[in-house]
């Protein structure tokens, strides 16, 4: 694909070559992170701002750290202490940051599509750090990178995603990325937590298979991704009870035995221990959960670097 990439809004417009390109830059960034002085001057003189309308620990810290290791000036904005609290609109806030000389805006927002609004109305480079139920492209890229580091390739891998797919931006972005990279995706969840027209019940991602039964979903899996269950799902009527969800869908050591021996386990965090994931698994031999956090910094450094260099798709 020709042209310059100005934003990272979703993975729906990423090619396999582009994703592989991110992996190789991330490898170089991991090397930087291993140095005694963890810094390179790649983004010196650039201003990177993080604007998070929703709470976040790991994504925000990960971006802050990534930008700092690249020597950027980092502005960390908290909407509750800025004019947003006075009712300033997203477009106004983005215009203000543009006027202040910000180059790259990292935006997290509860409304699906909010990063598009900023991208369409300013000249800023926008990185979507999670918007509503829609997309979380940097999380998916760090997940793909983590799998790639352990498996060497994503082509043909059986990846089972377990949990609340419907309300998960992490799941949506991973499905785009995994299918682009040639992995075979299986979704496992109660049908109330499955979005409309997805997988073999509809026509978006027809190659993705749906298996509401955890045992058949896990069989022969190379990768298991669990998603965080929002506890309020019961109140919304999507689940009869958290107890039943735990009984039917929790990943534990015994169920993990159905997967391949060398299965790797991922979770975007934070984990509801002993709900979607047994605590023994979180810290078990198959778990890459801690490494995901480390790789998150490397991937975000890679993305910031590529965007600031005038990224050719």
């Amino acid at each position: 694909m020709a042209g310059k990439r100005r934003h990272i809004l979703d993975l729906d417009d990423f090619s396999a070559e582009e994703i592989t390109g991110v992996f190789s830059v991330a490898e170089a960034m991991r090397e930087v992170m291993g140095r005694p002085v963890k810094k390179t001057p790649a983004l010196r003189g650039k201003v990177v701002a993080t604007l998070f309308y929703e709470p976040s620990t790991r994504t925000k810290v990960s971006f802050d750290l990534a930008a700092k290791m690249l020597s950027a000036e980092v502005l960390s904005l908290q909407p509750q202490t800025t004019s947003v609290a006075k009712g300033e609109s997203l477009i106004d806030t983005a215009h203000t940051l543009e006027a202040l000389g910000v180059d790259i805006l990292i935006l997290r927002h509860a409304s699906s599509g909010a990063p598009y609004l900023a991208a369409q109305n300013t000249s800023l480079n926008i990185i979507n750090a999670g918007d509503g139920w829609h997309a979380h492209p940097t999380q998916a890229l760090l997940d793909l990178y983590t799998i790639w580091r352990h498996k060497g390739s994503l082509e043909g891998l059986k990846v089972t995603i377990v949990g609340d797919i419907k309300h998960s931006r992490v799941a949506r972005s991973n499905i785009w990325g995994l299918t682009t990279m040639g992995a075979k995706v299986t979704l496992c969840c109660p049908y109330t937590l499955l979005p409309a027209n997805l997988g073999n019940t509809g026509s978006l991602f027809p190659e993705v298979s749906l298996k509401p039964d955890i045992y058949s979903a896990l069989e022969g899996a190379d990768v298991v991704m669990t998603l965080r269950l929002q506890r309020e799902r019961q109140a919304y009527g999507d689940l009869p009870s958290i107890r039943e969800y735990t009984n039917l869908y929790q990943i534990n050591d015994e169920r993990l035995k159905l997967a391949k021996k060398d299965v790797v386990l991922l979770h975007p965090g934070p984990v509801n221990e002993d709900i979607e994931l047994a605590s023994a698994c979180v810290y078990g031999p198959n778990s890459l959960i801690k490494e995901q956090v480390t790789n998150g910094v490397a991937v975000r450094m890679a993305l910031l670097y590529l965007l600031s260099q005038g990224w050719h798709k």
């Binding site: 729906d12 699906s112 997309a135 409309a196 027209n197 978006l204």
Partner: peptide, 13 residues
Amino acid sequence: NEGIVATRLGLKG
């Protein structure tokens, strides 16, 4: 509308 576009955009249908 509930369906492919809602799923793709992550919007309630």
